[in-house]
Design a protein around this nucleic acid. Sequence first.
DNA 1: TTGAGTTTTCAAAATTTATTGAAAAATAAT
DNA 2: ATTATTTTTCAATAAATTTTGAAAACTCAA
Lengths: 166, 166
Amino acid sequence: MELDEGKQKFIQSWGTLGSHWGINRTMAQIHALLLIANRPYSANDIKEELNISMGNTNMNIRALIDWGLVYKELKPGERKDFFVAEKDMWEVVKRIITQRKKKELEPMLRVLEDVSKVQGEDADTEEFKKVVQDIKLFSSKADSALDNLIKADSNWFIGTFMSMIK
Amino acid sequence: MELDEGKQKFIQSWGTLGSHWGINRTMAQIHALLLIANRPYSANDIKEELNISMGNTNMNIRALIDWGLVYKELKPGERKDFFVAEKDMWEVVKRIITQRKKKELEPMLRVLEDVSKVQGEDADTEEFKKVVQDIKLFSSKADSALDNLIKADSNWFIGTFMSMIK
DNA sequence: TTGAGTTTTCAAAATTTATTGAAAAATAAT
DNA sequence: ATTATTTTTCAATAAATTTTGAAAACTCAA
């Protein structure tokens, strides 16, 4: 396989994978491109390489920076901004967990808290409260577990999980 | 808060959450409805309750059954099929992990395996191979860890993770 | 075997989400 | 202050995904 074909395949697959992880396809493709880049890329480099508009490039670079998956790098004497990817996979996963926890798990916990206040003593209400309580308990456990995971350092995590792999 | 309002809120939120987890909104809403139901529901009950078409109802029920999140229940003397939700949250999470592993992680591993075969000795190729190798290693570790997680039983998991929460 | 009830299929329509492109704003060298 | 370059914004457009609805297939009792 040629390098260009390999790069192309990797970028496409990373894009598809990302789109299932709350990262849209272009956003993930930019991340993929920067992952396999051996130098910082300007927004224009990225635009050219992926054949996308400047607006799209700009919005997704900023989203990536916001998620902590890409860093801005200033080259002395250069007017343009340059960008590099976070390449430590555990760091990448941690950043994604952090974002999704904030955007999904935490709002869900608030809703569960809220709806657990329903009035009534009938069987339907009791069943509803029971289910909500169960999910609330599970979710807050997951929330704490994820917090700990994120706080823990890379090696500790790998170590703990490796011991699980037998 | 009234029970109906609470149910409605819960169904909507579960729908939104699901849509970030590879489960489309309707599919997650059906699951939510069945979670808080205190009896089996027919496809028609679901259609009526959520105000969706029969086609949509049918497709999403089958997807839920395929994912192992809903079970078909036959009532003696009844012609219709009835459905109940898997209510054990850890079981739900395991099923989702299983599906997503199959649909996302495993294809990615195959692509990584494939593209790691690129030809060439130059710096670009070396950088590419290095990144791919790193991701491949991380991904296969994650894959094994998830396998173990799925195999392990509910209490073992909760126990292990609780000890992490301090 | 017929036919009422039920489930499945799938092309077309509706909805949601992502992308473009052009204009405006910011930046920094002259 | 002027101008060339780069970045940002956002309404319009395009693409992708979901939902519908109507027809076909299936199921089972009579």
